[in-house]
Design a protein around this nucleic acid. Structure first.
Length: 170
DNA sequence: AAGAAGATTCGCT
DNA sequence: GCGAATCTTCTTA
């Protein structure tokens, strides 16, 4: 993400998939204005506010007209760590972007970026990895009440920036 | 019009 | 580990 004071970036080390037909996904219901970004073509940001305090960011993964997305759950901070520390109110590297709400706060992501094209050279974008991912683990997802058994949470195995269930897929 | 749930976080014990 | 905080959106009456 580009901002006035510089650049904020990180490696995505934990995600959750909410594919078509997933009862836990926000796009499971009919399309409404608040979830329209999930129905855009692949690679758009869907940012929503929840629990009275947190923004969370997804990347639309199907579309157009088909609702599905991938939740960003954790980053390994790379650039702009000072700025992230200030936004987060802590200087503990492991706590800067571990968890979807913290990730958004560290990156200064809010509703302004809902619907943003992440591949169009705007302020917020997805880039290809500088460092290759390690082994990828899969587990059940966190904090949902429907379709709880699906192994749709993916994370870099062994990363200290990931919290929660750690189990390698067979 | 009112109520409940929600892809969480933080602080306290 | 547990529970409160906090507010938007959708559902139901």
């Amino acid at each position: 993400l580009h901002c006035r004071r510089g650049r904020l970036s990180g490696r995505i080390v934990e995600t959750e998939a909410y594919p078509v037909g997933d009862a836990a996904g926000h796009a499971f219901r009919d399309e409404t204005p608040s979830i329209r970004s999930l129905f855009l073509a692949r690679g758009y940001a869907y940012v929503y506010f929840t629990y009275g305090s947190c923004f969370m960011m997804n990347v639309s993964s199907e579309g157009p007209g088909v609702g599905a997305g991938v939740l960003l759950r954790a980053l390994e901070p790379l650039e702009g760590i000072r700025l992230m520390e200030r936004r987060r109110g802590t200087n503990r590297l492991l706590d800067l972007a571990r968890g979807p709400g913290r990730l958004a706060q560290a990156m200064d992501i809010d509703k302004r970026y809902d619907g943003a094209d992440l591949c169009a050279g705007g302020k917020l974008w997805l880039g290809s990895g500088v460092r290759r991912a390690g082994q990828i683990g899969a587990s059940i997802r966190i904090g949902i009440t429907r379709d709880v058994h699906l192994l749709h949470r993916f994370y870099e195995y062994g990363s200290p920036f990931v919290s929660g269930p750690k189990r390698l897929r067979e």
